[in-house]
Each structure stands twice: as C-alpha cells, then as structure tokens.
Amino acid sequence: MSFEAKRCGVQFSPPSIVLIYQHRDTKKVRKRIIPVRNFFKHSDCSRAAEKLKNNPRHRDYLDSVTCSQLEKLHVILQDQMKGLSLEHSLASFHLDPEEDLNKLDDQELNRKKGQMDELFEKNRRHKDDPDFVYDLEMDFTKTMQDKCSWDEESDDGF
C-alpha cells in the first residue's frame, strides 16, 4: 500500500510528529501521530530524523517526507524541551540575506545551511542523471552586463 504525505507537524506533549497522509488507492485522508522516543535535549536531530525515516513501522508513511523536513521537526521539538519558544525555532530557520552568518555558532549556522540545502537539492544535477556533464561550461562574458548595485556605495576596492 502506498501513502502520500500531505502535511506534517509536531505535538509537544508527548513529543510526537503528526502526519496527515492520503492512501494512494482509496484516496482516504488520515492522521498518524508518531511518538518520538529516546529523544532528549542533547540528542542529534539529524540522526534521530534518519532513524525515524527508516523505522519499519513508519517508513511507508514517511516515504514522501524528506530527511531534512523530519530533522527540522525534531529541532522544533528539541527547542521546546530546552524551553525555547516556537517563534524562536521558526525564526532560526528563516534566511535573512542581510544577516552575517559568520557570527553564528555551529548549530545556528547548520539551520541556515539546512534551508539553503533545500534549493541546492532542488537544482542539483547528480552524476547518475542521464544529461549529467562533469565539465559543464557556460560563457557569461558575452552577455550584456549591467552595473551591479552592490558596487554602488563605493567603499574601498569596489
């Protein structure tokens, strides 16, 4: 039997991942609450997500949910265990192009990288793809080039 995940979220007490999914055959929509066990304040979220994804009881349901999404849900659960608000968790995933990421610690930086990875994976060409070219070259020097606004406030060197 195959299922299509429609939405997913968390429930704080007891810590669980909530999944709304649809039976591909019957088209029936159901809710599944997956309690998150052996998961604590200092557990590794990415490992916990992977374990859950491969759990024999849940893996068929989680088939269309990505590891990074499951990881994010674990991070939210863990933040709550640490006493951080949901607003804080959600803000930490938000990418602000003006923010200086050099100033973040590892964990905060990884959250931002996780967000960037979504676009990376979406645009990624794998070496197994039929149209994969290892040495893909494109010449952009011949295209009309506009001035870049980033150069405008001319401080030293720009």
């Binding site: 645009n123 080039q145 506009d146 001035k147 870049c148 150069d151 720009f158």
Partner: peptide
C-alpha cells in the same frame, strides 16, 4: 549559486 537566479550573470561584479 547562480542557479538560484541566472540573471545575476548579467551583473558585473566589479571587485
């Protein structure tokens, strides 16, 4: 990351 927006290749980064 030009895949995010190919239009940036029309911008000249002067640095």
């Amino acid at each position: 990351k030009i895949d995010a927006d190919l239009k940036v290749t029309q911008r000249s980064f002067n640095f």
